[in-house]
Design a protein around this nucleic acid. Structure first.
Lengths: 204, 204
DNA sequence: CGTGATCCTGACCAATTGGTCAAACAAAAA
DNA sequence: TTTTTGTTTGACCAATTGGTCAGGATCACG
């Protein structure tokens, strides 16, 4: 049973390759649309060998999602209650946008999952995720109460940051197609735009 | 061949039922994740009978998407160049949010499609969609040139409206789970928040 | 070296997939 | 009432799906 912990060198390498391949495939086709053959081929393994490392398709998916959740929520987690409100929020926006540029597959993986009603991570959202958001929303509410930022609904403020930043990863195809010059990188302009938007929104 | 036009009463009824069922299934599972059996059952037809009305799975999907595109872009299309800029944009935002509330399945259908690289409607995006956005972005740019709204990047302004409004349809599960009271309707608060956001953003 | 644990494979399986087809059935036209 | 047209079905198909299993290959270690 290699599933308890990553012991050997080979196990580490292959589990890593599988998760990498699975990220590719799941993020592009969703859970039901992805196939084990695709993942196995992309990882350079045979299908039975793949199933030697993970017992089921769901196990791969779960391992991916739970392993990524911490990384994905890091920018929000590092928002500092003692910092300058506008600066903290702007930094959060920029770091979140940077995540969309650097890790678009991760963004699409979560998007696919949530789109389908979050059947595999619904629990995680209701616990870990909600706890984090509750905490940070309280911080934002405090800032608003102190008059340091305008009185905006803290949860919807967070939602709008998620929406706008993840949009550039999840809907990359549409963004690029709409902007025309397909080779053009939309992210620099996006950062400028979002900085302007939140600066105007948060300063009195 | 019933595929040229909807002739008989039965054809109209069944084609309608199929598209309705397909919207349910495709929007929840994506193209590859959806099955003909699911759609047939949801439409109350046998699978061969379903394939009597549409030759392939792709045909159903295409019919759905192309039939919906016009409806989906209506709010942007009706943005009036001769109206008051702030009011026009705010109305657009509100109508778009209303679409997310009234037609979440349609939103998720497009989201699924674009997430996977828009393999079936990439062409439509590059032509019809882009033309519309180009036109309306020009209107917004004019408004900015005339000093009637701040100088914001028109395309990214439109993207941000898409992102924030569609977020409430596409990520409904996450929004409700995060807000806690699962039975609570997030849309009224969302409308208030978005109105505030764009009012602050667009007024000098 | 040898031996036990780990790693890998080809052959296989039942279930499901999108799709076909001939024949039966129903509706409408004659 | 025929005849024609339109509609529905059960049986079927090849391909693909997630997953199993016995045995072979390879590794680490004494």
């Amino acid at each position: 049973m290699p599933h308890d912990q990553q012991r050997t060198r080979i196990q580490r390498k292959n589990r890593q390759a599988i998760l990498e391949a699975a990220l590719d495939v799941f993020s592009q086709y969703g859970f039901r649309g992805a196939t084990l053959d695709q993942i196995a081929q992309s990882a350079g393994l045979s299908k039975p060998n793949l199933l030697y490392y993970f017992p089921t398709k769901e196990a791969i998916h779960s391992a991916l999602l739970s392993g990524l959740l911490g990384h994905w929520t890091a920018p929000l987690r590092s928002m500092n209650p003692d910092g300058d409100p506008v600066e903290e929020i702007l930094t959060y926006v920029r770091r979140k946008l940077e995540m969309s540029r650097e890790y678009p597959r991760e963004s699409r993986l979560f998007a696919n999952e949530v789109l389908q009603g979050a059947p595999h991570i619904g629990e995680m959202i209701q616990t870990e995720m909600k706890t984090l958001v509750d905490e940070k929303a309280a911080v934002i509410a405090d800032w608003a109460d102190q008059g340091r930022i305008p009185p905006l609904h803290p949860y919807h403020l967070i939602f709008s940051i998620w929406a706008m930043t993840q949009h550039y990863a999840d809907f990359d195809t549409q963004v690029r197609a709409t902007l025309g010059g397909a080779d053009q990188d939309p992210f620099p302009e996006a950062e400028t735009y979002l900085t302007t938007l939140f600066t105007r929104l948060l300063n009195p």
